[in-house]
Write a protein that binds this DNA or RNA. Structure first.
Lengths: 203, 203
DNA sequence: GTCTATACCAGGATAGAC
DNA sequence: GTCTATCCTGGTATAGAC
């Protein structure tokens, strides 16, 4: 992420704004350039393509999410740890809410822009779902894992409502996701601290 | 919806396929025309614009969903009726799964194409959420209603997995949505048959 | 009523001057 | 680091053949 006072940073900020307002494809590079106060061709000096610009917006979130999934897979799948991972996921969405709410709106554009890292991204969500579903899952477990991930998306819908207190959103969405997973039925193996310091540091 | 053997119907079918595969904006009219075996300009005879083509794909689902929300608002908000409405929502998604899975993928394009009916559509999801949240809702109730609607989206993700039995999907998704709403806490007023014949007919 | 040929314009991308 | 000029693709539009 670039500082807001560099040209690169200003382009990124304007792009997020316009992409979110109008969608990726309805936003022309000319429009972005005009608002920044440069020409279309100048954009190309800073970003090699429109897709690259979109990717630059998304990538910080993708990196955080990667760290989260990596961390999850190193944790034993206890109820406390599942809660912990879901909570970190919600936090990541809120932290990058400019990028994530745009992603939700423009899935197709994001998928295209992600091309170089698309397999990574798919694998990432697959790994998260697998971890949530648990070992040797029944079809119902898989569906519940999918539903839990969908619930996380409500974070953004809720955070978009102005008068909604943010910690209320975090609490209720977390509870909902946990409920969908039927966490009470997950076996609790050896006691293990959920707030593993190593994990807390990585994401 | 047109029969699959009319040119109009064949255009629609090819469009759904390509839009779903590649996204709306990455699919050119030339590509569609080629696969149907006509020219780009011929498309123009059958559909006045690319947007109109997209709209023709979405509209049947939108109509069903409108009927569902209309019906819901005429029902007392009992646990049984909430289950009933959610179930009908899942059915509608599965029935129009070609359109709905494309909508999920291409929210931005759909929003643009919907322009003439966008306010309707927004109002529709708002009304559904309001009905689910119940009268005089706390912030937490609103968030849970949002999360429940998100859960319905898992229907499509799950239905996309080939070996997933469809009635398992319906059952588990419904349970998850109901759980998110904490339906057990909804007061049960006068007993009322959930399978109201009038409602069953409208959607 | 169905289709083709053809033109027009907006927008993404590139080359090369300053 | 920014500009002007130019190219190409794709959505849109119309005139007219069958």
């Amino acid at each position: 992420m670039d500082a807001a006072d560099t040209t690169r940073g200003r382009i990124r900020a304007v792009a997020v704004e316009l992409f979110t307002e109008q969608g990726y494809d309805k936003t022309s590079l000319r429009e972005i350039a005009d608002r920044v106060g440069i020409t279309k061709a100048s954009l190309y000096y800073h970003y090699p393509s429109k897709q690259a610009l979109l990717l630059a917006i998304i990538e910080p979130f993708l990196d955080d999410w990667t760290a989260l999934v990596d961390a999850a897979e190193r944790l034993p799948r206890t109820p406390a740890n599942i809660r912990f991972v879901l909570e970190r996921g919600i936090d990541a969405m809120l932290r990058h809410r400019d990028a994530t709410s745009m992603m939700l709106r423009d899935v197709a554009a994001v998928v295209t822009a992600l091309a170089p890292r698309l397999e990574d991204a798919k694998e990432l969500s697959e790994r998260m779902r697998t971890w949530l579903a648990g070992p040797d899952p029944a079809p119902a477990d898989v569906i519940r894992a999918m539903a839990a991930v969908e619930v996380l998306g409500a974070t953004l819908a809720a955070a978009a409502v102005p008068e909604m207190p943010e910690d209320e959103v975090r609490r209720v969405v977390l509870d909902a996701a946990v409920g969908v997973l039927r966490l009470s039925e997950v076996a609790e193996p050896a006691p293990q601290p959920a707030r593993d310091p190593e994990v807390a540091a990585t994401c």
